[in-house]
């Protein structure tokens, strides 16, 4: 297995973890972290798969840089919304209050 494929395989693993987190977790900050994990996974797949031939390919590097910028922006927006949600309703999840209290206790 070349190093590129290894990167890609690890990326896939991170991706699966990330998607699982976004979909299944309750706490908003955890979900946002999971989204970042998912993004990193995809970037690894992108860089890893492109470098199988051994030589450095600049195009995916440029793409990943752009992708990182996008995901930083998305994270910032998500965190702002999560803070707002907390300020409005004191809740750190998207569920309504009754259900959240069931979960926490």
């Amino acid at each position: 297995m070349s190093s590129g494929l290894l990167f890609a395989a690890v990326g896939c693993l991170l991706l699966v973890l990330g998607v699982g987190g976004v979909l299944l977790l309750d706490h908003l900050v955890r979900r946002i972290l999971a989204f970042n994990l998912m993004g990193s996974g995809i970037f690894l797949v992108l860089v890893g798969l492109a470098q199988r031939s051994g030589r450095i390919d600049p195009v995916p590097q440029a793409m990943v840089l752009t992708g990182i910028v996008v995901s930083v922006a998305a994270t910032a927006l998500a965190l702002a919304l999560a803070r707002r949600r907390y300020a409005d309703s004191g809740s750190t999840t998207l569920q309504d209050k009754a259900r959240r209290e069931d979960r926490h206790d």
Binding site: V19, V45, L46, L49, L81, D88, L94
Partner: peptide
Amino acid sequence: QVTAAMRYLLASLVGSGGFLLGVALLYGC
């Protein structure tokens, strides 16, 4: 609206994540 926006954002991010993964696979090929 904040709750709706948060749901929308997460759905949107997962959706474009899937799209980017596809782009990565196609570029790899």
